[in-house]
Design a protein around this nucleic acid. Structure first.
Length: 674
DNA sequence: GATCCTCGAGTTCG
DNA sequence: CTCGAGGATC
């Protein structure tokens, strides 16, 4: 039938147009050397759009007309990175770069390797996953293990190819840094100024804010760009060097920074870092340093990872942007543990795009060490991160009016005496009933990693305590709507939301509950360890110091602290209140003591492809096994992932059995862990 | 006793 | 992110 033939022809033409447009997108956006006029390009797009309107069945997500297709979303989904995105160790001068190189050369037992130097973009790292030639997922770095799914937003960035050539692997991940160049940033801010919208402080914030828009149509209008800086993982053959993998990614249509350089040795890299420091302002985008990577990918595997940092790469950071301002006053906060934390009140000053008014001063020793005095002119910097630091005073600007700081003798919140334990850096308020501590305890109890009670923040927590409605966290569970509505700016609806959030927290896992109690030295990790060991809060409360100490990762201090907590009358009373309110103080489901891996000690090293380390550990525990962090004589199995660290060596010394990831998965399968 | 790692606690700005 | 402290190991 002729209709069929017509449809068939349209389909072919649609595919052809897409290929042509993709080619011109690449020429224009990636290579910056178009082959056709804008009018010619528009004509192609128009034809494609018309055909797609007529034959909507041919619309696919990788069509260039569909860059902005997504609808606004409520929130981003979370995706697990198959291979974690690592962070980098820093070097702040040539000497530290050389030291890094020496360590790597020692471990590698050679020093003749080439290095790749790449401008370190100040942007937002993302991971792009392609399957069968199509972009299927784009995610933020997040904490390195899991990030946010921002695929629809990334699709709007013209330099990100929606499709890649046929010779690409079936599945692979490309990693890059999304950023906004200086001109785009200025134009965006001019536009926002005209529209009376708040301005972005710097290109980095603008890029990060744009990528995290819930409505992709907003993202599409932002002048975002990307440089791909690494091949994440790939199924199949990959080039032997980092440099070649970049070239190869370039040939697939990705945008690679043309300023990347491969150098033969560390001295050349050091020279280059110095040169770029001078030239950084000449670039059209902002950089905060250079990344230096060992080119040979085989060496990457040999050198491995320490903590979350690969040994085969390092970030050379330019000196941070500094400013001077007046230190007006030193204030003191009281922390959850009663610690007195001094902070600097500064005359507001702009540093690296943000206005700084406060900065933490850590503790008295630190202030003394840096010789910071009230009234000093001080140097402020925002190094790499966001958090401002007081570097030190400008002693030459002293007038003699400056005062030295002294830790107050009485708690600024409650007036109780302050004491400083022998050998500790911090001073503490001695009053167990200090209102400031109680307030911080409450904030900790409701916080995200603990009971996760949404809607109770700083201000509501403060007013609840002010009104005498809440004296300890357990009181949250007896709040009534009438009480809440009596508070300022609290209508029926929001009061109900709060009550729902409180009620919804009654069934948190035991580990969360233990963490929420805020026992000194017991953070999220130790709380989880305790929850694995004891089936209920009562069982934990009954444990002796000796018994607690026998648990790996728990030494005398933690054991003592836990025991003391449960012996304190006020704490026992609060736990009783929690119990009566219906908060579950028992582990969920059957105790893990019966699992098939009962009594076996597992340790994981390197990166696993199919799950994150904590996930793998969770599975082990769910089968009754133990998962530790370092190899000892007691370790039964070492699970070896990609780029194992020093643990593997240890395991060989002790003759510990090792499992490959495959074997480990097989073991889990055999014992019925999904 | 020294040293390596991991964990805990407090923190800034928009 | 930072520092300091706690735990484990040699």
């Amino acid at each position: 039938m002729s209709v069929d033939r017509e449809v068939q022809a349209a389909k072919l033409r649609v595919e052809e147009l897409r290929a042509i447009i993709a080619h011109h997108d690449y020429r224009y956006y990636v290579l910056d050397s178009p082959e056709i006029s804008d009018a010619g390009y528009d004509e192609l797009m128009r034809e494609l759009r018309q055909l797609e309107e007529r034959y909507p069945q041919f619309i696919t997500p990788d069509s260039p007309t569909q860059r902005v297709s997504g609808q606004p979303v409520e929130a981003f989904g979370i995706v697990e990175h198959r291979l974690p995105l690592l962070s980098l160790a820093n070097a702040f001068n040539g000497e530290e770069l050389r030291a890094w190189h020496r360590r790597a050369a020692n471990l590698a037992e050679r020093d003749d390797f080439a290095l790749v130097c790449e401008p370190k973009m100040d942007g937002l790292a993302v991971a792009l996953v392609y399957e069968n030639g199509r972009l299927v997922q784009g995610a933020t770095r997040g904490d390195g293990t899991r990030g946010e799914n921002i695929t629809e937003n990334l699709r709007t960035i013209r330099t990100i190819p929606l499709t890649v050539g046929k010779d690409a692997p079936v599945r692979f991940e490309a990693r890059g840094e999304v950023h906004m160049n200086k001109r785009g940033f200025e134009r965006l801010n001019e536009e926002r100024a005209r529209e009376g919208q708040p301005l972005f402080a710097n290109p980095r914030n603008a890029a990060a804010g744009s990528v995290r828009q819930l409505d992709p149509r907003v993202t599409a209008r932002r002048p975002l760009d990307i440089f791909i800086y690494a091949l994440g993982w790939a199924e199949g053959e990959t080039p032997p060097t980092h440099w070649e993998s970049l070239e190869w990614l370039g040939s697939l249509g990705f945008r690679i920074n043309p300023n990347n350089v491969r150098v033969p040795d560390i001295e050349a890299a050091v020279r280059l870092c110095g040169e770029w420091q001078e030239r950084r302002d000449g670039l059209e985008y902002e950089i905060d340093g250079l990344v230096v990577k060992i080119d040979d990918r085989e060496l990457h595997d040999r050198l491995g990872i320490v903590g979350r940092e690969p040994r085969w790469a390092i970030a050379y950071k330019f000196p941070p942007i500094q400013a001077t301002t007046k230190l007006l006053e030193i204030g003191v906060n009281v922390g959850r543990t009663g610690s007195l934390n001094p902070y600097a009140v500064l005359e507001p000053v702009r540093v690296g795009g943000a206005t700084v008014k406060l900065a933490t001063l850590h503790n008295e020793d630190d202030i003394r060490r840096k010789d910071i005095r009230i009234g000093d002119t001080v140097i402020i910097q925002r190094a790499g991160d966001v958090i401002p630091q007081v570097v030190g005073p400008v002693a030459s600007l002293r007038t003699g009016e400056e005062r030295e700081y002294r830790t107050p003798e009485r708690c600024p919140a409650c007036g109780a005496p302050v004491h400083r334990p022998e050998g500790e850096a911090m001073s503490y308020c001695s009053n167990v009933a200090c209102p400031a501590q109680a307030f911080r305890q409450l904030a900790h109890f409701v916080s995200r990693g603990a009971m996760d009670i949404d809607g109770i923040g700083e201000s509501l927590g403060a007013s609840l305590m002010q009104a005498g409605l809440v004296k300890d966290p357990a009181d949250l569970y007896s709040l009534t709507k009438e009480q809440l509505v009596g508070l300022e700016r609290m209508a029926d609806k929001s009061a109900q939301n709060i009550l729902d959030a409180v009620a919804g927290s009654k069934e948190r896992p035991l580990g969360r509950v233990i963490f929420a109690l805020g026992i000194r030295h017991v953070g999220s990790e130790i709380a989880e360890v305790l929850a694995q060991r004891y089936p209920s809060l009562d069982a934990l409360a009954a444990a002796s110091v000796e018994e607690l100490q026998s648990i790996p990762a728990i030494g005398p201090k933690i054991a003592e602290s836990v025991s003391a907590y449960f012996q304190t009358e006020a704490n026992r009373r609060m736990i009783e209140k929690l119990r009566r309110a219906g908060v579950r103080l028992e582990a969920e489901g059957a105790p893990p003591a019966e699992g098939p891996l009962q009594g076996l000690q597992f340790v994981i090293t390197g990166t696993l492809a199919s799950f994150s380390r904590s996930e793998a550990e969770e599975r082990v525990r769910s089968l009754g096994g133990n998962a530790g962090s370092s190899v000892t004589k007691k370790t039964d199995y070492l699970v070896v992932g990609e780029t194992p660290g020093s643990k593997l060596k240890k395991a060989r010394e002790y003759g510990t059995k090792t499992l490959s990831e495959e074997e480990f998965r097989e073991l889990l399968r055999r014992h019925g862990a999904a």
